[in-house]
Structure formats: C-alpha cells, structure tokens
C-alpha cells in the first residue's frame, strides 16, 4: 500500500522534499513507514528516537497502524526562539 508522508523542519531539508509517497507492505505501522523512509533517505536514520508522528493530522504513536492512502507526518523537535 501507499502512504503519503509529510516531513517538517530538518527532516524536510535532509529528504529535500516536503512530501513523498512511500510504499509499505500490509499491515504497517507508522514505524514501518519511518523505516521505509529511512531506506530511501538514510540521512534520516539518526532521528528515529527523536521524531514524533501524526496520522491524518492526529498525533500518534509510532506503533499505530496505518492504512492505504493515509497521511503520515513526521516531526522532529525544534528549539529555536
């Protein structure tokens, strides 16, 4: 299945994309999507423990299941002020 991934802040810069489509096997969780993303963009790997995610604009745990066509957003922490 395909999910639509949206990236923010530093993740967006490293992936050089604000959004991209990721293919994952069924069933999948947000963590499955993240790992598939890291295969495409290895530079994201160090953020694994720091990212938060939202599925269809709802904050979600990485263990949350995703469905075909879901929007999955990954957010790194941001500290500037």
């Amino acid at each position: 299945m395909h999910v639509n991934v949206r990236l923010f802040a530093r993740l967006r810069e490293l992936a050089e994309a604000e959004s991209l489509t990721v293919e994952v096997p069924t069933p999948a969780t947000a963590a499955t999507v993240w790992r598939a993303l890291c295969v495409t963009v290895p530079a994201l790997t160090p953020f694994e423990r720091a990212v938060s995610c939202a599925i269809n604009t709802n904050f979600s745990r990485m263990s949350q299941p995703v469905a075909d066509g879901d929007d999955v957003a990954f957010l790194p922490p941001v500290s500037g002020g």
Partner: peptide
C-alpha cells in the same frame, strides 16, 4: 509531543 530531549547535536 517529545518525551525526551533529542540526542546532543542532532538538531
């Protein structure tokens, strides 16, 4: 949102 601070130097 973010339970723990990120690893040093990541951000």
């Amino acid at each position: 949102l973010h339970p723990e601070p990120p690893p040093d130097g990541l951000i």
